[in-house]
Amino acid sequence: MEVMSDFKITKEISYEDLKALLGKSQNLFLVDVRNKDEVDKGRIPGSIHIPVNTVGDAFSLEPEEFKDKYGVTKPPLDAPELVFHCQMGRRGQMATNKAHELGYMNARNYTGGYKEWSEKEGK
């Protein structure tokens, strides 16, 4: 598969920016791509759990199927605030890259992950 050389710019979001979005944005679509065991130990409020190995399939679903499976409306391709996160950033980056491949050009990775979130939130 051919990849454009300037395409590998993964968009990222900081803890501060994510915290601000959580406080004010109705459009934030936050996806937790960790495994179920990790999510059961704690999660960022408002996040949707879609494991990293299922992100491609999930975001390829028809909107009705997506809503049936995850209980939320599938974000449009031009969703302004689509954010993926994992525990420490690597799986979040993989998920963000997958979303970009599917046409979600504004998808971003919260690189600090749940590890940073829980430290800053004092969990």
Rank of each mutant, 00 (worst) to 15 (best):
E2H: 11
E2L: 14
V3H: 06
V3I: 13
M4N: 12
S5C: 13
S5P: 09
D6G: 15
K8A: 13
I9G: 08
I9Q: 12
T10N: 03
E12H: 04
E12K: 08
I13R: 02
I13A: 06
I13M: 05
S14Y: 08
Y15M: 04
Y15P: 09
E16P: 08
D17W: 03
K19T: 06
L22M: 15
S25F: 13
N27A: 11
F29C: 07
L30R: 03
L30E: 04
D32I: 01
D32P: 06
V33Q: 02
R34C: 02
K36W: 10
K36Y: 13
D37F: 06
V39L: 11
V39Y: 09
V39R: 10
D40L: 15
R43S: 14
I44V: 08
I44S: 02
H49R: 04
H49K: 02
P51W: 00
P51S: 10
N53M: 11
T54Q: 10
T54Y: 06
G56M: 03
G56Y: 02
A58W: 01
A58N: 01
F59Q: 01
F59W: 06
F59M: 09
S60C: 06
P63Q: 03
E64L: 03
E64S: 14
E65Q: 15
E65G: 08
E65N: 15
E65Y: 13
E65R: 14
F66P: 00
K67V: 04
D68T: 11
Y70L: 06
G71N: 03
G71Y: 04
V72Q: 05
V72G: 06
T73L: 12
T73E: 15
T73Q: 15
T73V: 15
T73P: 04
K74N: 05
L77A: 13
L77N: 07
D78E: 11
A79E: 12
A79K: 09
P80R: 14
E81H: 09
L82I: 04
L82M: 13
L82T: 03
F84C: 10
H85K: 03
C86D: 07
C86I: 00
M88Y: 07
G89W: 00
R90Q: 15
R90G: 13
R91L: 01
G92M: 00
G92P: 00
G92A: 05
Q93W: 00
M94W: 02
A95P: 03
A95S: 08
A95F: 00
T96D: 02
T96H: 09
N97R: 07
K98L: 10
K98I: 15
K98D: 02
A99V: 06
H100K: 14
H100R: 12
E101H: 09
E101R: 05
G103E: 12
G103K: 10
G103F: 10
Y104F: 14
M105I: 10
A107P: 04
A107G: 05
A107S: 09
Y110R: 01
Y110F: 14
G112W: 00
G112K: 00
Y114Q: 01
K115L: 14
K115T: 14
E116M: 05
W117I: 02
S118T: 08
S118L: 02
S118Q: 11
E119S: 11
E119C: 07
E121W: 07
E121L: 03
E121R: 07
G122D: 04
G122H: 08
K123C: 13
K123D: 14
